[in-house]
């Protein structure tokens, strides 16, 4: 579904991605882990053109993504570390905004779909609240619902629980686990090793802009091959 080949990205003289090559298949759940500054988030942001890569290619269903910018973004949902909910819109309006503006869904259908999504993330009672009234965990669940409202084929998560208080991490991970069950293709940059181990089909371990290991989680967490992965796991587990 997604073919990444020799992906490179620099910010000024600082090369953040130094040639990433991998393939992500439909329905796979990928956990991207690694130390800070290893290029995980940049890699994810390249996939929906929030960053434009300098060299290499990203193809989605065989088509180079630079050629299908807006069409592509409708197909890819993104969840951010800092939620980025629209503060001047209510929870319901946050979710219905893009379907109405971009997909030209009727208001009635958009609202109905949004209420279903809110129910799925357990926030039916918050439809008319403004984001500032929500806890971090609730905000992130709304953000997931907002991305899902576009009916994406792929969901990207950029450290979705890193900005949360510890007691709110679980409720967000639970929503993501439910999403895994629906067969959604998911790429998750995360520091939640337990979660990665439990739900991921593959773990991509990145370090210093390179893809160092690409393994089944059982293999990666029990028997990391490279020294760098061993050193990393020793620190975080």
């Amino acid at each position: 579904m997604i073919d990444v080949n020799g992906l490179r990205k620099s910010f000024g003289y600082n090369e953040v991605l130094k040639g990433i090559t991998t393939t992500i298949n439909k329905g796979e759940v990928i956990a991207v882990i690694g130390p800070s500054g290893s290029g995980k988030s940049t890699f994810l942001r390249c996939l929906n053109l929030l960053e434009t890569h300098n060299a290499g290619s990203i193809k989605i269903e065989g088509k180079e993504i630079k050629q299908l910018e807006n069409h592509l973004r409708k197909k890819i949902g993104m969840v951010f570390q800092h939620f980025n909910l629209f503060p001047h819109l209510t929870v319901l309006e946050n979710i219905t905004f893009a379907p109405q503006q971009v997909l030209k869904t009727s208001k009635k259908d958009a609202v109905k779909n949004a209420l279903d999504l809110l129910k799925a993330v357990g926030l039916s009672d918050k439809a008319d609240a403004y984001p500032s009234r929500l806890s971090g965990g609730q905000k992130q669940r709304v953000a997931i619902a907002r991305a899902l409202a576009m009916k994406p084929d792929i969901m990207l998560f950029d450290e979705p629980t890193s900005a949360l208080d510890p007691e709110m991490v679980k409720e967000v991970l639970q929503v993501m686990k439910n999403l895994v069950k629906t067969g959604m293709t998911m790429i998750i940059v995360t520091h939640e090793m337990g979660f990665a181990k439990e739900v991921a089909d593959r773990v991509l371990f990145m370090d210093d802009g390179k893809l160092v290991e690409d393994e089944h989680p059982a293999v990666f967490f029990e028997n990391p091959k490279t020294e760098r992965a061993q050193a990393f796991l020793e620190k975080v587990l």
Partner: peptide, 27 residues
């Protein structure tokens, strides 16, 4: 306006004009 707002709108496929008028300018 927080640049995350623009990114969120862009990631949802919202066109520039709509983004400016309905997301960025009101804030």
């Amino acid at each position: 306006v927080d640049k995350g707002q623009k990114e969120a709108a862009v990631a949802l496929g919202v066109p520039y004009r709509t983004m400016m008028l309905k997301i960025i300018l009101p804030q």
